[in-house]
Design a protein around this nucleic acid. Sequence first.
DNA 1: TGTACATCAGTGAACGCGCGTTCACTGATGTAC
DNA 2: TGTACATCAGTGAACGCGCGTTCACTGATGTAC
Lengths: 217, 217
Amino acid sequence: MASVGLGRSTYHHGNLRRALVDSAAGLLAARGVHGVTLRAAARAAGVSQAAPYRHFADKEALLAAVAEEGFQAMNAAIRSAVAGADGDAAHRLEAVAVGYVRFAAEHPALYRLMWSPTPSGRAHPPLRAAADAAGAALLALIDETRDAGQRTAQPPVDLLFVLWALLHGVASLVVDEQLPRDIQATVPVEMLAVRAIQVLNEGLRHSRSLAVPQPGS
Amino acid sequence: MASVGLGRSTYHHGNLRRALVDSAAGLLAARGVHGVTLRAAARAAGVSQAAPYRHFADKEALLAAVAEEGFQAMNAAIRSAVAGADGDAAHRLEAVAVGYVRFAAEHPALYRLMWSPTPSGRAHPPLRAAADAAGAALLALIDETRDAGQRTAQPPVDLLFVLWALLHGVASLVVDEQLPRDIQATVPVEMLAVRAIQVLNEGLRHSRSLAVPQPGS
DNA sequence: TGTACATCAGTGAACGCGCGTTCACTGATGTAC
DNA sequence: TGTACATCAGTGAACGCGCGTTCACTGATGTAC
């Protein structure tokens, strides 16, 4: 039929959900959140504007799916960055930091969406799950990458949180292009991440007294 | 005249620009960026929907004015928090952190707007200026609050940047409600800020080797 | 192996919406003389 | 002190827009018998 979309030879698409998420992610990267539209995503997938409603309850559900895959992708990117580092604890921790910040720098609009209040994890359990999993994996990874001597006094969750906050802060500044000009011009993103983590790691090393000791660990 | 807005007895408003910025800030706090609309701001100011164009070129210009005042307010809040701290360097630094994070927690939508790519500082010089001034003031404040012994090896701008990134990270996590539930339930925002700054300050203290010494300072 | 039929995944037209922005206009203000 | 007039800051009606969403529909699929 002439009215069937360009990329299809059959009335049914076959994998429309996948195609819509990909279209939306493309729109997000190219034009920001504002550019993500159910109609535009449908158009990009070569399908009528009502078709997405077979797969997503509303626009926010589509955004939630995009954000969900963002968390999975970030998780994978950080893991692979760590896998490429040597066994030295400090280097592995730096690899986490670089992987994290680089992901954000390479996918600014996606990173922003992932942390924005809409779509809300509360309303979209799979998104919530992906975010929680990524957070837990990151914290576990950070803890793993500390050397054995440091780990005897295992830092409580709120010290790990400080590390996470630092990474998020660096990533956000990079993503939002808020770095002072002199820094932005001379220091590559990866170096900022490494520097930050070095400073903080020194802090953790000397902050055992702040940690609540975990008996028996 | 019956057609004149409720709050006015004269055809001219008198201080419409001020009123529009206030309305917009109110809408922002109450409904998020999405709720900020030229028409809604005009309505709230008791004025026709075309009136704002006498004072703002377009919608983004109104948002820029709101963000600009946000930077000024945050700057003032942090200064007053520091002014209330005693002379001890560590306590003063903690006061900066608490002031920063508390401002963000109290004005989440505003804080988000201030760092978002729209309105862009590039397109709105006064916004750019306010952001730069706030950044510079913050960095200066952070540097001031370190004690003399530490300051002999003055940390270069990229170490100050680490501190700033940490504050921004904590603030962002709080603002976006992304804290793990167990932390959010048990640790007040201010305590997170203090803890973060303590850890980092230890790190700075032991990271002189990272700093490029400033000859003659 | 063939056929009836329930179910699923699309179509296309239409709705109502609030928005940003423009336009010709008019009331108010203040300054030159 | 009074008046003409330029300028400014509002009005109100209208435009076009793309959007989210709904609806009755139809083509395709796959399963029971």
